[in-house]
Design a protein around this nucleic acid. Sequence first.
DNA 1: ATTACTAATGCGATTTATTTGCAATAATTT
DNA 2: AAATTATTGCAAATAAATCGCATTAGTAAT
Lengths: 124, 124
Amino acid sequence: MKRRNTPSKQAVLSVITKAGKAMSQDAIEEEIAIDINRATIYRVLNRFCDDGVLHKVMAEDGKQYFALCETYDTKAATHQHFHFKCTKCDTVECLPNQVNFSIPDGYLVESVNCVLTGVCKNCS
Amino acid sequence: MKRRNTPSKQAVLSVITKAGKAMSQDAIEEEIAIDINRATIYRVLNRFCDDGVLHKVMAEDGKQYFALCETYDTKAATHQHFHFKCTKCDTVECLPNQVNFSIPDGYLVESVNCVLTGVCKNCS
DNA sequence: ATTACTAATGCGATTTATTTGCAATAATTT
DNA sequence: AAATTATTGCAAATAAATCGCATTAGTAAT
Ligand SMILES: [Mn+2]
Ligand SMILES: [Mn+2]
Ligand SMILES: [Zn+2]
Ligand SMILES: [Zn+2]
């Protein structure tokens, strides 16, 4: 299943890149220039996640937010940094802070989902 | 709005207490002895959260899990500890580890949702 | 014990986010 | 240009959680 280059792919990636923050499907659809079907946007996003281009964050509001993978976490395949979701502007951003944790013996951690919710700098 | 003591409340709290872990609505409904409507279970759970008896965790699977508040976090009204969700047994548990983070100036953190996903001790 | 007040419940319908089946389209290779 | 098949659009399906509203049932006052 070789990936193909399509307008949808380009448009979605462009919007997220320009935004410089994590975005939900509906935010992307709003922001995007061309008309792309909802299901297609989700499929594009999930493919990007599979390919290590984006990573997915589940916020407290039960919605998925998608953000660019930085080069450093692409390699390690880990995205163990905090995210911040502002309740005023609904923005979700990746924080530079690494999540560090220690778990009891015998536990295997496969993914990390850490979201801080509150009010961002712009909104306070 | 004074709270009343009902069989539903007692049953829900009893199930969660016995389980000793965080549970989702459907898991509670399965485990519970008496028949309680889905909406009622959610309402009971959310009331318990409002009252500081339970706290709510949003997992990567997009489902809410409810766990008992320990006495120490009841007082501080903060639940800044890690949670672990096992992909094999679907168990969500509160870990003793405190989440510590530092955020840029001007940000106000109101809640913390940190979930590690992987394989638990029992399942590995 | 009876009554009055209203919190809590059951039920169905609704909302919201995300996924899926399938036929049609279009990117890529030959 | 033809063949191959990844990708798309559309509608329908899932799935989690909430909501409106009439009914039930705790609780406290009489
Ligand atoms: Mn917990
Ligand atoms: Mn959902
Ligand atoms: Zn903000
Ligand atoms: Zn397990």
